[in-house]
Amino acid sequence: MEPISTSKLFLEASAVFTGFSKTELKATGMLQSYHNTILKNTNKEDIDYFFIDLNQLLTDPKQDAKSIKHILTTQFMPISAYGSLAQNMIILWYTGNWGNDVISSASYIQGLMWDTIHAHPPGAKQPGYGSWSDLPLSVKQSTVKSSPNGK
């Protein structure tokens, strides 16, 4: 398999499994590092089949969103599928860990779970004096957006 296409597929797969957009994932700056992490820690055969099968599923014109979700759930998410690659990949993006190991300072700091809960990794990306006393900025701004009184 071409390295470039694996990398593209890795981004695609990451977006599907994490629920974050490709741009959001790129914005973490972790794409390359995580791609290397899975290549290093997962059986090659599992990786190859994972991406081949996933690519086939996502490019199959007969599938719709519902059927894709079903197949992902039953064929990709189980711990027995592709050496648990889907589960490990999600945990990697959300926590910055592979198993119990922290990949790097950056992976800890870029864990998606912190954004998800409108917080920040403890000890990094601090939000400034008194910020904790209000709603998180990300919550406030989404309220502004949806509020009919907002400009």
Binding site: K26, A27, T28, G29, P127, Y129, S131
Partner: peptide
């Protein structure tokens, strides 16, 4: 002012996100 300026921190994190995008 003091809380208002705290937004400076978030400004940085949002900027870094953009800089990570080729």
């Amino acid at each position: 002012l003091i809380k208002g300026i705290a937004v400076m921190y978030d400004l940085k994190y949002k900027a870094i996100e953009l800089l990570n995008i080729p």
